[in-house]
Write a protein that binds this DNA or RNA. Structure first.
Lengths: 122, 122
DNA sequence: GCACTTATTGAACGACCGGTCAATAACTTT
DNA sequence: AAAGTTATTGACCGGTCGTTCAATAAGTGC
């Protein structure tokens, strides 16, 4: 009942995931989220409550299919470096994602993904 | 000639390095820099020109003794994830630091340092 | 002491930040 | 068609962001 939503939540989370992965948590502004998802601020806050919650939703959505793509690795890196040490909930989500990943050398893969960022521009 | 500086530039860069390493580039504010270095905003800008330049000075100072300490690894991670892909100068500094490092498995070490951040709080 | 040069100080700037909310719209139920 | 419920809209909020700069201080050389 009530007015129906105009947007698909999964799709919005997916767009937020792209942004957070590439620009980082502190590097992503609400305006950018608004522009890329098409939702206005009010709708984002009604649906997710806060920027932090939206990030957590995006991070959690990795668990469903952690594919070791650059985007996934970037988001995990952002979660670990920018938030995990001060946010136990984020830290726990990271643990779950990694425990479900069927690779023994996640650290090697994360590190390689980081080092790749300095190639191709000098 | 002129008024002499009250501060030791190397020491200020070192304090900035600590902050950037632990809080990230976008996560570190001028106010925090002011509080931890003891310099006022005007002095920081006179000495370094911009927040970005101060970060570059901090990053470059790693080259002198890249010791693979958590702080050094954190700063390198910040440089790579938050800046390197959009800032060729930062990317180049990262390359120099890593080429000077006498370790073949930097990626493994960077990754391990990241994963360590999710331990010890659930 | 006066001119010159360079550094410190901190108030002020406009831009942007994450977040709020009253008004309105779109649905269901009766 | 009226009442009830939930979603959208976007202007607005106080606070913080990185940056600037005129006033002042602290040196040196004449």
């Amino acid at each position: 009942m009530g007015r129906p939503r105009k947007f698909d939540e999964t799709e919005v989370v997916s767009l937020a995931r792209e942004l957070f992965a590439s620009r980082g948590y502190h590097g992503t502004s609400l305006d950018e989220l608004v522009n890329s998802t098409g939702l206005l601020r009010g709708s984002i806050y009604k649906a997710f409550g806060s920027k932090r919650n939206l990030f957590e939703a995006a991070l959690s959505s990795l668990g469903d299919d952690f594919d070791q793509s650059p985007e996934s690795l970037d988001l995990l890196t952002v979660a670990l470096k920018e938030l995990a040490s001060e946010d136990a909930k984020v830290a726990k989500i990271c643990q779950e994602i990694i425990s479900r990943a069927d690779s023994k050398n996640v650290s090697e893969i994360l590190g390689r993904n980081l080092l790749a960022k300095m190639k191709g521009q000098n």
